[in-house]
Amino acid sequence: MQRRAAGVYVAVFLIIAAGAYSLIGAAQEPTIEVDNPQKTLESQGQNVTVDGRQYNVTSLGGGSAEVAWTNESARFSKTLSNNTTVQYQNETRRVVIPNTSDPNRATLREVQNLSNDTQTVTQNNETFVVTNGSQGNKTLVPVDEYKRQQFGEPNTTTLQQGNNFQFANNSTTVANITNQSVVLRWTAPKTNTVSISDGSTVTLGPNNKRFVAHAENGKMLLSTNVKAYNEQKSEIAHFNERIAGLWGVTIISFLAAVLLGMLGYLPNKG
């Protein structure tokens, strides 16, 4: 009787496992379809325009892409702190700001460096260069005087708040001067890049138009119908959840049938 009941349960569980497995085999996973995409990225080097802004496809492949556009009048700024150095006109210049409460001027002064074999000494907080006199005696020359003798007067450029000057090949405005720093501002072209990957959303164009990206056959399709795309993704996720459940039913039912078969046909004691 025990074996007969076990056989019935084994058959039931095997039928359940087979039924679930057959449903897995018959089910077809839904796919994402993007109908009438607003933009299609087809090849590297392609130009794409969104609301008047032109993008260049700099890379495409492997389910991702990158596009670049140039802002011809991007704003830049740089802060020059007092007593720091900066490159200007192929020279190293030091930023010198007057020690006043509200300065409106600053100076970029050429840095004149002593050679490595120049001997210096410091006395009473003043630096001197040790030079050899005509009679072989040593002479101390103040370092600033020595530099003037060797290099001449250092090149200087005066910066006045509100004025423009050429800096890093750009017309630059001296926006603000304090006793701590000088703020420079200018406009220049700037290249901006946007990375796009399959399934991601990106904003393009001056009006920040929102697109969803879908990789297909080596291309990248861009659609503004983000809602429809997300609904299709939700359908796929729900489908996979159901398939995972059917696999669970199949495996558990098969293991239950095996276990019942083993227990039901154990030899009787005695």
Results as ranks from 00 to 15, higher is better:
156 T>A: 05
242 R>M: 13
83 N>D: 13
145 E>H: 04
179 N>T: 10
187 T>R: 13
136 G>E: 01
164 N>G: 00
109 R>L: 06
260 L>W: 06
180 Q>L: 08
243 I>D: 09
188 A>Y: 07
202 V>W: 05
236 I>W: 11
259 L>C: 06
162 G>N: 07
81 S>K: 08
192 N>L: 12
243 I>T: 07
33 E>L: 07
268 N>E: 13
50 V>N: 05
93 R>Y: 07
253 S>I: 01
65 A>I: 03
219 K>Y: 04
99 N>Y: 03
12 V>P: 00
113 N>F: 10
110 E>Y: 05
247 W>H: 13
179 N>K: 13
30 P>R: 12
29 E>F: 07
102 D>G: 12
84 T>F: 00
251 I>H: 08
242 R>W: 10
88 Y>P: 03
50 V>W: 11
213 A>Q: 05
249 V>W: 07
173 T>G: 02
223 S>W: 08
177 I>F: 01
218 G>Q: 11
114 L>E: 06
116 N>T: 09
2 Q>I: 10
119 Q>E: 13
88 Y>W: 14
159 L>C: 01
213 A>E: 09
146 Y>I: 00
260 L>R: 10
95 V>G: 01
154 P>D: 04
226 V>H: 01
205 G>Y: 06
31 T>S: 14
68 A>W: 01
248 G>K: 08
193 T>Q: 08
139 T>E: 12
227 K>Y: 10
158 T>F: 00
206 P>F: 08
20 A>N: 02
109 R>V: 09
68 A>C: 04
255 L>G: 08
16 I>V: 13
127 T>C: 01
22 S>K: 10
202 V>Q: 14
190 K>Q: 15
269 K>R: 15
243 I>Y: 01
97 I>M: 08
157 T>E: 09
96 V>F: 00
21 Y>W: 11
82 N>C: 01
167 F>R: 09
87 Q>W: 00
228 A>F: 01
198 D>Y: 12
39 K>Q: 15
172 T>F: 11
52 G>N: 11
183 V>A: 14
125 N>R: 12
17 A>E: 02
233 K>H: 00
92 T>S: 13
223 S>Q: 07
17 A>C: 05
74 A>H: 13
100 T>K: 10
231 E>C: 01
139 T>P: 01
264 G>R: 09
254 F>A: 15
177 I>V: 08
63 G>M: 12
118 T>Q: 02
192 N>T: 15
225 N>K: 11
181 S>C: 05
221 L>N: 13
120 T>H: 02
176 N>P: 01
107 T>W: 12
26 A>V: 03
1 M>G: 09
11 A>N: 14
169 N>S: 15
78 K>R: 13
175 A>H: 12
232 Q>M: 07
241 E>T: 14
196 I>C: 04
248 G>T: 13
195 S>D: 15
107 T>P: 00
225 N>V: 10
248 G>H: 02
263 L>V: 12
205 G>W: 12
223 S>P: 06
211 F>M: 09
86 V>G: 03
213 A>C: 10
196 I>E: 03
200 S>D: 15
229 Y>N: 00
132 N>A: 14
204 L>S: 11
1 M>D: 05
196 I>S: 00
54 Q>E: 14
265 Y>F: 15
55 Y>I: 07
254 F>E: 06
255 L>R: 03
180 Q>C: 03
194 V>H: 05
88 Y>C: 07
31 T>C: 06
53 R>D: 05
109 R>I: 06
150 Q>V: 10
191 T>K: 12
161 Q>C: 09
86 V>K: 10
76 F>I: 02
172 T>D: 10
197 S>W: 03
